[in-house]
Design a binder for these strands. Structure first.
Lengths: 145, 145
DNA sequence: AATTTGATTTAGAATAATTCTAAACTATAT
DNA sequence: ATATAGTTTAGAATTATTCTAAATCAAATT
C-alpha cells in the first residue's frame, strides 16, 4: 500500500486539527507506514521505512511526527522493559504479548469490559485513566488453541 | 533500620548461593536499602542512599548488585514508560499504580489467582511466564474507599 | 601459610535512545 | 506581498545503562 486511504487521511487531519496541529506530508507518511505494517516498529524502524519512500526525512522529524500522532490520540506508545519505544496504531482495547525468543510484540484483543473490571482491584482513592497489560513468554509452534 | 534482619540475610545468601553468586557487603547493603524504604527507587536513588552508609561504593557496583538481586529472584525490576528502571523487593503478586502528578509508583495487591486468570485471554499457543499490570492516573486526596 | 583461581568492585569510557537547539523552510493569515 | 507561527532538519546534548580493564578480595589448593 502506497498512500493513506481516504478514511485514514480524514481521521488523521481531523485528529491533528483537533489538537491544533497541521497535516504535513511527513506526518501522513509516518502514519501510513504505521498502518501499513502493524508490527510495533521502533522509531528507528519507522525512520528506515519512511526514508525509503521519502529520502529527505530526518530522524528528528520521525520523532516529531510520532509524537504528534501520539498527542492527537491516533497512535499509542508501547514500552517493554526499557527497550526502545514502539508505536502502535491499534486503538481498540488490547493487551500485549512479548515473545522472549524473537523480541516481537503481539496485540492480544481483550474481551469487552475486561480492562474496566481490572481497575476494580484499585483502592477507592486511586483513579486510573489507563490500564496496561503485558504478558511475557514464548509462542508454542503448531499449537493454535 | 541499619542492617539486614537475620531472616533477610539468610534469604539473601541462600538465593545468591543458589544462583552461584557470592554474598558480599555491597550486595547486603543494597538489599537492605531496598527493604528499608520500599518506594521503588531508581538505581541512582539506591546509589545515593547506599553511599551515605558505604561511601566507597560505586555506581557500577550498585548496578551490579541490583542485577545480582534480580537474577537470584529477590528483586523485581519495574519499568514505567521508559523512565529509569525502578527496583522492587515485593515478591507477592501485585500490580503497579503510577501517579501522573507525583511520578510515584505504588504496589497494588491483587486477589489470589487474578494474575492466573488474566492469562486466559491469550490464544492457546501463547505461553506466558510473567504478567505485568500497570495503572496510570492520580490519587484522590481524602477519599479512602 | 603461600599461591592460584575466579569472582567482585571500581573508575571511567562507551553506547544508544531520545531530546534539544537553532537555522531554514512552509503555509497560512494579514 | 508580508508577517506570523508552525514544521522540518542536522547535528549537538543528554542520560540511563553497559562495557572495559585494572585492582581487590575471598575461597580453594598446594
Amino acid at each position: 500500500m502506497k498512500t493513506l486511504k481516504q478514511m485514514d487521511r480524514g481521521a488523521l487531519s481531523d485528529a491533528l486539527d483537533h489538537a491544533g496541529q497541521r497535516t504535513t506530508p511527513q506526518r501522513e507518511m509516518v502514519f501510513s507506514i504505521l498502518l501499513d505494517e502493524r508490527n510495533h516498529p521502533t522509531a528507528d524502524e519507522v525512520y528506515t521505512r519512511t526514508k525509503s519512500r521519502m529520502p529527505t526525512i530526518s530522524m528528528a522529524t520521525v520523532y516529531n511526527c510520532l509524537e504528534a500522532l501520539v498527542t492527537c490520540g491516533l497512535v499509542k506508545q508501547v514500552n517493554i522493559e526499557r527497550e526502545p519505544t514502539r508505536y502502535c496504531p491499534n486503538l481498540s482495547p488490547h493487551a500485549h504479548f512479548h515473545c522472549r525468543e524473537t523480541g516481537r510484540v503481539y496485540d492480544v484483543p481483550v474481551p469487552e469490559g475486561m480492562m474496566k473490571d481490572l481497575v476494580k482491584v484499585l483502592p477507592g482513592n486511586y483513579s486510573a485513566d489507563s490500564v496496561e497489560l503485558v504478558f511475557r513468554g514464548h509462542l508454542e509452534k503448531g499449537k493454535t488453541k
